[in-house]
């Protein structure tokens, strides 16, 4: 191994790379989802510009899918925007939670990396071993996920035919496998984590049978109920995480 040229005085450089690395599983997981979005967007009559534009500007999977079905159903603009808002209101919770661990950095920088908060980037960042979450880390993470989302939306539109069915189906596990991989190591160390995830999982499964709680609300409600109730049950006796 070559002697390393004077240890970099910028620790942020390494964090940026770490972020990209942590974003790779998301990039893989987004691939089939974005690809399918591109395909469906074409079928719904969007132009390539509108399809890629939506992925660039909105960057939120589920609500983009719903937007397509609403465009196809000729829904009104206000209805479409309101639905998007409701679907994505859960980001409030993630943004507030992330703030608790965010490095003290200028607001405008936070305003930039806030754009990249998704279920997936949040989960990775919030469970990472970093002591404080920095802009470099989050931007690396966010850009890895974002570029996959944007590029494969366009690719899906242009290819015009699906991935081979067996591959498409098996790749559907990717994001869930990532969530499981983030959860299990923490759950092995803490019963509180098991209680939190278990409670929210059971609640969200129950909520999925209630029509008006589908979409965004089920996730927010189950997360909030679990996070609040466990905090009060567990009190101070497991502060050793």
């Amino acid at each position: 191994m070559l002697p390393s040229p004077a240890i970099s005085s910028e620790p942020t450089h390494g964090l940026w790379k770490k972020g990209i690395q942590a974003g790779l599983p998301i990039a893989i997981g987004y691939m089939p989802v974005a690809f399918t979005f591109g395909l469906l967007a074409k079928a719904a009559g969007l132009s390539l510009f509108e399809t890629v534009g939506m992925s660039i500007i909105v960057f939120a999977g589920a609500s983009q899918y719903i937007a397509l079905s609403m465009v196809a159903a000729a829904s009104g603009a206000a209805e479409l925007i309101l639905t998007t808002f409701i679907m994505n209101i859960r980001h409030l919770l993630m943004s507030a939670s992330l703030k608790e661990r965010a490095e003290d950095e200028p607001k405008w920088i936070k305003a930039i990396y806030a754009f990249f908060i998704t279920d997936e980037t949040f989960s990775v960042a919030a469970t990472s071993q970093e002591k404080k979450i920095t802009a470099s880390y989050l931007l690396g993470l966010g850009l890895a996920a974002y570029s996959s989302w944007v590029v494969f939306s366009g690719a899906g539109y242009l290819m015009g035919s699906g991935l081979p069915e067996s591959l498409q189906a098996s790749m559907g596990i990717a994001l869930y496998a990532m969530f499981i991989a983030l959860l299990v190591p923490a759950a092995k160390k803490s019963r509180k984590v098991i209680a939190l995830a278990g409670t929210a999982a059971v609640l969200n499964s129950l909520f999925s049978f209630i029509p008006f709680l589908s979409g965004g609300w089920g996730i927010i409600l189950s997360t909030l109920i679990a996070a609040v109730s466990i905090e009060f049950f567990v009190k101070g006796d497991e502060r050793n995480e």
Binding site: L93, T127, A187, A197, A200, S222
Partner: peptide, 19 residues
């Protein structure tokens, strides 16, 4: 404390029933 609980709770909700 509640905000620190959010990541683990949301992971549970993201995995089930979706998976």
């Amino acid at each position: 404390g509640i905000l620190k609980n959010v990541p683990f709770a949301i992971l549970g909700a993201l995995i089930f029933p979706g998976v």
